[in-house]
């Protein structure tokens, strides 16, 4: 059974007006998506900028309510975030594409993680919290000194890692990563990818991994779904995607990646 099952997902947003006299246009951000993430699977979701990847992720988190379709987690329906039980809320965590605006600017990093533990005592560390905090930070390559700083006093990649640490501190069963390693150098990036692989092996973590970086996809994904203008145009094993891409958009994507790589 799949851990995450998305069926017939459709999301339409009200878009901008063409002029003041006209009504608002509509944007079909997600136009009928079916997607599964199996237990202990890492599924990559890739695709053009604006193709609807973050919108799918936000639906899974219950931050956007789809017009149509269903999303289930371990067989239970996933509704809007406010109606989720604390257990369910904790089990599905997300690392947002934009860490700057998803971290509370008024709290220090330490307070952000402690607050998460306070809200979910079931996974709060039993012993010394300070030590536990230092450990979750070290796991993502941050030194303990970061705990006393506010997000505004961190570099872009440090904010991104705080966001990962906060999500993982809650020991989720499903992690949705939206461009979670996009601003990180290869060394820190591989440390985090290894961490995710370890969590999969030791704690049965499943991951929906949105990324534009095909090299990252190649390193960790079991399956890859390719999104284009609101629909999935390809959903296949990682190996097949790279060796025999079927859809023209996927081919263009790989071609562009190879061109860049050839130049390096």
């Amino acid at each position: 059974m799949s851990v995450l099952e998305i069926r017939g997902l459709r999301v339409t947003f009200a878009g901008p007006r063409r002029s003041v006299r006209e009504p608002r246009t509509t944007v079909r951000a997600v136009d009928g998506v079916d997607l599964d993430v199996g237990a202990r699977q890492t599924v990559a979701l890739v695709g053009e900028s604006g193709s609807g990847k973050s919108t799918v992720a936000r639906c899974v988190l219950g931050l956007v309510t789809p017009q149509e379709g269903s999303i289930t987690f371990e067989g239970r329906p996933l509704g809007p975030v406010r109606r989720r039980s604390p257990g369910l809320h904790r089990a599905v965590q997300m690392v947002f594409q934009d860490p700057g605006s998803s971290l509370n600017p008024r709290m220090t990093v330490g307070a952000i993680v402690r607050e998460a533990w306070r809200a979910h005592p079931s996974v709060a560390p039993a012993g010394d919290r300070r030590e536990a905090l230092a450990r979750v930070l070290a796991d993502v390559g941050l030194d303990p000194g970061v705990a006393d700083r506010r997000p505004s006093a961190l570099s872009g990649g440090q904010k991104q890692r705080v966001s990962i640490a906060r999500a993982l501190a809650l020991r989720p069963r499903l992690l949705v990563c939206d461009e979670a390693v996009s601003a990180l150098d290869v060394s820190v990036q591989s440390q985090i990818l290894r961490l995710l692989v370890d969590l999969r092996d030791e704690h049965d973590l499943s991951v929906l991994f949105i990324t534009h970086d095909l090299a990252v996809v190649r390193q960790i994904a079991d399956r890859v779904a390719v999104m284009h203008r609101g629909v999935l145009v390809e959903d296949t094993s990682a190996e097949d995607l790279f060796t025999t891409p079927a859809h023209p958009y996927t081919q263009a994507l790989l071609e562009a990646a190879r061109t860049l790589e050839g130049a390096a």
Partner: peptide, 14 residues
């Protein structure tokens, strides 16, 4: 350490 797109690679050594 730059991972490749053209070939499958293990996760780079941090």
């Amino acid at each position: 350490n730059v991972p490749a797109v053209t070939s499958r690679t293990a996760i780079a050594e941090p």
